[in-house]
Each structure stands twice: as C-alpha cells, then as structure tokens.
C-alpha cells in the first residue's frame, strides 16, 4: 500500500499513469452520463406532485453531493500536505478547487431554476441554498489565496491550512444556517417529503452520481497533468517527454 502511495506521489509516475487512465475515464463517464441522463429524462416516471420539473434533480443533487465531496477530498489532501509535505497532494488540492467550485455553482444554478416552478421564485434564503452559497465562497477563498501567493510551494501549504480550517467549519456553518433558517422562516415547501424514493427514480440518480464522480477524477487528472507540466517545466522528465 505504501509503495503504491509513494509511486503516485512521484510526478513523472503520476503523469504517465494518469495519461493512461484518461481515455478509460472519459469513456466510462460518457457511458454513465448518457445512460443516467436518458434514464432520468425519458424513462423515469414523472413525480406525482412536481410533474416533470423534478427531473432537474438528476443534475442538481449529484452536483451538490460532489460540491461537498470535493471539499472533503481537499481537506484530506491538506492534511497530507501538512504532515508529509507531499507535492502531489498540493497539486491535487488546488486542482480540485475550481472543479469543486464549478459543481457548487452548478448546484446553486440548478437549485434556483428548480426553485422557480416549486417556490415561485429563483432564490429563497433556504438553508441548503444559503450554506451552498457559503461553500462557494470558501472554494473561491481557496482559489484566491492560491492565486495571490507567488511562491507555489508556499501557496500549497497556505491553501492546505485553509482547506482544513474550512472543513472544520463547514458542519458548523451548515448547522447554524439550518438553525437560522428554521428560526426565521416558517415551514417552507420541503423538496421531498416522501420517506423514500422509488427505485425507478433512484436508479438514474445513482447513475448520474457515479458519472459525476468519474467526471471529477477525469477532470482532476487533466488539470493535475497540466499543472505538473507547468510546475516541473525545468525538470528532466518533462524535457525527455517533449524530446521524444
């Protein structure tokens, strides 16, 4: 296991391995994404309350899940950076941030588009929407801090600390926003009162969730490879790569 860990921690190894994985990931993503989308938009039954408009759930919910998952990945990378000073973890951390921010933004936009037919307005200060918005700010803070520090190794450690501090705060923020919301607004229309969701609706949701996960790894590998080339542009392995 440690050998595996060390191998992936070496930039040239990561670059080559990730390059081999890329087409597979892209293909898998396409399979899951298309089947999930077709299943969700065409075959899944319409909701008895919300009709057809609920189908945005197949983009909204996986995006929201990813937005939280990616921040967790970043926090774990942050710990690895601070403990083992691993360069790859820094790069994975900072390459994840824009992807996570995009998913958060996607979740916000689809959420507000869903809100229009359901609540009659694009934006309500709903607990989930609000804490998702704050999550977006946290992502932008990470990206902004990394961009502001010129020395990239130092920037990597700075965002590692920030990611961990943010991860400690996310549950607190989420909980307090939820509490605030229940205090300030009466019961609003809840999205899904139903205790469980029928499998014919659940299946496309899971397919889309897997598709988004694969997309994340795929996009992450692409970004990490680009970042590696830029950071290691003076090293021998990059030179050899471009000579051959």
């Amino acid at each position: 296991m440690w050998k595996w860990f060390h191998q992936w921690g070496s930039p040239p190894h990561f670059y080559r391995r990730a390059g081999k994985w890329l087409p597979w990931l892209g293909g898998l993503f396409a399979v899951f994404f298309i089947s999930g989308l077709v299943d969700g938009l065409v075959f899944a039954p319409a909701d008895y309350q919300q009709g057809e408009s609920y189908r945005i759930i197949y983009v909204h919910v996986p995006a929201a899940w990813m937005s939280m998952f990616i921040y967790m990945v970043m926090a774990v990378c942050g710990i690895i950076v601070l403990v083992w000073r691993m360069k790859m973890a820094e790069i994975v951390l900072i390459s994840s941030a824009p992807i996570g921010a995009s998913f958060t933004f996607l979740a916000l936009v689809t959420g507000s588009l869903w809100g229009k037919p359901m609540w009659g307005t694009y934006w309500v200060w709903d607990a989930r929407l609000t804490s998702e918005l704050i999550l977006l700010f946290l992502y932008l803070g990470v990206i902004g801090l990394y961009g502001a520090i010129d020395e990239k190794r130092m920037a990597g450690r700075a965002v590692a600390i920030l990611a961990i501090v943010g991860a400690v705060n996310i549950p607190i923020i989420h909980f307090s926003v939820e509490w605030w919301n229940s205090l300030h607004q009466g019961p609003t229309v809840t999205k899904f009162d139903k205790p469980s969701i029928h499998w014919s609706m659940l299946l496309p949701l899971l397919l889309m969730a897997v598709a988004f996960q694969i997309y994340y790894v795929w996009a992450l590998f692409l970004k990490v490879r680009a970042e590696l080339l830029q950071r290691e542009r003076n090293s021998r392995w990059v030179e050899e790569l471009f000579r051959s």
Partner: peptide, 26 residues
C-alpha cells in the same frame, strides 16, 4: 495566511467572512 502578501486586504475578507457566519447568526 495572508501576512506575506502585498495586497492581502481583499483576499483576507474572502477568507474570513464566510467563517464568521455562525457567530453572526447566533
């Protein structure tokens, strides 16, 4: 985190304000 930066002000508010949210709420 931002002490070494020449223009840390704006970025500082971006980092700190979201973390202030729970205090403000309560």
């Amino acid at each position: 985190l931002t002490i070494g930066l020449r223009k840390g002000g704006i970025i500082l508010s971006l980092l700190v304000l979201p973390l202030y949210v729970p205090v403000l709420i309560f």
